[in-house]
Amino acid sequence: MESVVDLALLGLLAVTAFGVLHLRNLVAVVMLMGIYSFLSAALFVVLDAVDVAFTEVAVGAGVSTILALGTLALVGTRQKRHAKSPLIPLLIVLVTGGMLVYGTYDLPRWGEPDNPVHGHVAPEYLADHVPLAGDEGDVLEVHIPNIVTTVLASYRGYDTLGETTVVFAAMVGVLTLFVGSRRQRRTGGPPADDEGGSGAS
């Protein structure tokens, strides 16, 4: 049953991705990306990743849709028909995809309990019994039912600190790009000599 739902959702994801590629109305594209996020969240629930599904719904379908729509309000919603031949990109994509598919034959089969991924630290996390470096037999036990929270905040706190810093850095980046110069757009006329003024504001 799990596999059937999994297959159906993956099929829907593939169809939605195709729609995203082909539509030229960018508002429709952004809305399709929202649907795509919801579908992938459903897929994550089937794959037992409830926390990831929650995040995907809140972030992927909520905030990123809003941000993309805000961008479209500023840059316009039509994508121009491109004149370039699609042959070379298609060739690159097919060759890359072919090689990747060939590579999947060496991957462990999906969903098997004895895959290498499940062997290293995951059992210790799940048993809430993580050996500490240093003294022999010293273990860390947190006693919180949601293992994802425990791993996120405690066992892998460094990772999360890094990710939080990246989010903060992205905010600084956007503010740096947006605050500052209010330069007029160039519309073919002679270049205005305002290069010096842009940095000062």
Partner: peptide
């Protein structure tokens, strides 16, 4: 978030 899905990010 300690007992079910959720946490600071969400």
């Amino acid at each position: 978030g300690d007992y079910g899905p959720g946490g600071g990010f969400q």
